[in-house]
Design a protein around this nucleic acid. Sequence first.
DNA 1: CCATTGACGGAAC
DNA 2: TGTTCCGCCAATG
Length: 110
Amino acid sequence: MSAFNDKVYKLVKRIPAGRVMTYGAIARILGDPRKAREVGWAMHGCPVDVPAHRVINRFGSVSGDTYGAERRTLLEAEGVRFDRAGRCDLAVYEWSPPTPSRRTERPVRA
DNA sequence: CCATTGACGGAAC
DNA sequence: TGTTCCGCCAATG
């Protein structure tokens, strides 16, 4: 288990219900913007205590074939709205980890 | 070691 | 976010 992989899990666990993060955003926060694919690969075998359904691609759509439908259902249960194309509004739902010197968190209710 | 693949991203059209 | 192409990187055979 690489350190990068562990960081991904830790970050994903901090994502609040009803909010999502993209693979690229996670990789970027972890310091390796180009490792977006690895984030996805890490989620492929993620433990059950990691809310992998809150990690989606940059289009706001859920990737994956079989597991994708299940994850999307979980997100909808948390209040995330999907349009007909299976995408959600990242401008509204995308979440960023809290920073020590900044507390600008807003409720976000679409 | 080389080729292929992928739960990605982004630039170019 | 339409489609196509390419770069990046780990895992897999």
